[in-house]
């Protein structure tokens, strides 16, 4: 048996859309290698999510247990390894979210599997996979030499799967988690009414050109409100503490690919560009005509942002 197992992610009680993009990847993989697409959902009280997932895959493995109330890599990796065995999986994949990045390499160690991170596509044959390296300046085609292959997939690069015709079966999975050495203490959530950065169709990002933290609420938020956009930022302003950490777009933050990305007062360092150059349309507002961001922008406005951002917000 050689099937493909997708690890679902439930966050704050909701099934993440990124999971459907990973099912999209898995279906393409199944066309290349054969086998069925199955899924695993881990958590406490996740039965309803298992039913939802059954609309997309042939078998849903459910590890539903109080031990899984919080997404700890230590316990979840054990569930993933157990499910991989019971699914007869040769590919085990999950979206490259913060949780996916945390847990999948640990699961790979338990499975003695080779792992490819942040996959953006396939190579010519079989399970040849493509991944960006060097801050997105190079695409490497790789092959995993192990029998079981672990993969994380970049959510922006795969279409979310649509429901299949036949509903899949749901199977309970029991997992021995032993005595965990990790204890969950707290989650401090960043409250936001805005669309999630990774899913939004419009993103407005601000950088150091905004000069001070108060200019995020003064200039960026009204523009984002008008466009129903998510807000992103460069590392410079996240480090400065102007905005929460999880707004960082880039090589070492979040990767986004909205229909419209508006970069305000961002120079366009390669590390930033690595996280947004897949956007459909890019607008850059920067007063320096030499700023590297203009080399990748579809529309560049060489102006003082303090003058043109309020005008843009007003006229949209």
């Amino acid at each position: 048996m050689s099937n493909i197992l997708v690890i679902a992610e439930v966050s704050e009680g909701e099934l993440k859309r990124a999971t459907l993009t990973c099912i999209g990847f898995a279906r393409q993989a199944a066309e290349r290698t054969g086998g069925t697409v199955q899924a695993l959902v881990v958590g406490k009280g996740v039965g309803a999510h298992a039913e939802t997932l059954a609309k997309y895959v042939s078998t849903v493995h459910v590890a539903d247990d109080g031990a899984f109330e919080k997404p700890l890599a230590e316990t979840y990796a054990k569930a993933i390894a157990a499910a991989a065995e019971s699914a007869g999986a040769h590919v085990v994949c999950m979206a490259a979210t913060a949780h996916g990045k945390d847990v999948m390499p640990r699961a790979a160690a338990l499975l003695q599997a080779g792992m490819a991170s942040d996959i953006v596509g396939f190579g010519k044959d079989g399970m040849q996979l493509q991944r960006p390296i060097q801050a997105g300046n190079v695409i490497a085609t790789v092959e995993l030499t192990t029998e079981v292959k672990v993969v994380t997939t970049r959510p922006t690069e795969f279409e979310a799967a649509t429901e299949s015709e036949a509903a899949g079966e749901v199977k309970a999975l029991t997992v021995d988690v032993g005595t965990p050495k990790t204890t969950f203490v707290a989650f401090d959530k960043v409250a936001s009414e805005r669309p999630e950065l990774g899913d939004a169709s419009v993103v407005v990002s601000g950088g150091r050109g905004l000069k001070e933290s108060g200019n995020f609420p003064a200039l960026i938020e009204p523009l984002a409100d008008k466009l129903n956009a998510a807000i992103g930022a460069s590392r410079a302003v996240v480090d400065a503490g102007w905005v929460p950490n999880d707004m960082q777009v880039g090589q070492t933050g979040k990767v986004v690919a909205p229909n419209l990305y508006i970069a305000v007062g961002i120079s366009g360092a390669i590390q930033h560009v690595a996280g947004m150059k897949g956007s459909k349309t890019i607008v850059a507002i920067n007063k320096d005509p030499e700023a590297p961001i203009f080399a990748i922008a579809d529309y560049g406005l060489v102006e003082d942002l303090f003058k043109v951002v309020p005008e843009l917000t007003e006229k949209i």
Binding site: A140, L144, L301, E311, K315
Partner: peptide
């Protein structure tokens, strides 16, 4: 290696865009 690298290549380049003169033209 468990991860064998077969090939390196450059990513698809974005096409160069245009400079707009003002907010009205951008919109």
């Amino acid at each position: 290696p468990k991860v064998r690298i077969l090939e390196y290549k450059e990513p698809a380049e974005r096409q160069a865009g245009v400079t707009v003169s003002d907010v009205d033209q951008l919109l």
